[in-house]
Amino acid sequence: MLEARLVQGSMLRKVVDAVKDLVSDANIDVSSSGFSLQAMDTSHVSLIAMHLRADAFEHFRCDRPMSMGMSLANLAKVLKCAGSDDIVTLKANDDGDTVTFMFESPKEDRVSDFELKLMDIDSEHLGIPDTDYCATVTMPAGEYARICKDLSSIGDTVVISATKDGVKFTTSGDVGTANVTVRQNTTADKKEDQTIIDLKEPVALTFALRYLTSFAKATPLATHVTLSMTRELPVMVEYAIQDMGHLRFYLAPKIED
């Protein structure tokens, strides 16, 4: 029996909205530690890893680990029916082939429930090694989203170069070339305006802007995004889900000739 009650139900909707265009069907794995989702996009170029800890839920009961295969588009349709302040409760039987979502308004004067059919999805599970990254850039999520959007109108690949002064995004295409530099700023009054760079050594990697832009769909989740880079390894683009967990995207760098 699975029963999980999330007071900030809107977080679930933001997570699903962030990934539904990259991944169509995915297994949501539930265990005593919470909810996890790991899936590659259809072209196997990017990987999504989400974890929502059990202690994020006001009530969490998971008698035994289960894997719920779902169409993320359908899940998004169901979650769209929840009010932005609704409490969301998920229920599923151990041998069930459906999952029920219950939405309660804060004043508990409106309760709705939606039952979603589960699917059998065989997905290969990848082991993501812990990496000691050369450069970790924490910057305003809105700033990152804007840079991806702006540079996508100029080129289709971006070189991200992290140095101790700042992080530079460079692209070029038929239109011309563009550089955006975000300087380290650890003294901004508002924390959400700060850009912090933890650098072990400078690193510059080339990525497909299409995927980086797609990751920015997670912007509503958090004020900051963290880009972690090391030569010749996938970049990790991470959004914290408040203090409940994380949504991580991985993208392999393009190989220079």
């Binding site: 072209s43 196997h44 390894l233 993208l251």
Partner: peptide, 14 residues
């Protein structure tokens, strides 16, 4: 365009 390696080449499949 530069070649784009797939991810599984970086992560071990469990």
């Amino acid at each position: 365009a530069l070649p784009q390696p797939p991810l599984p080449s970086y992560f071990t499949s469990e």
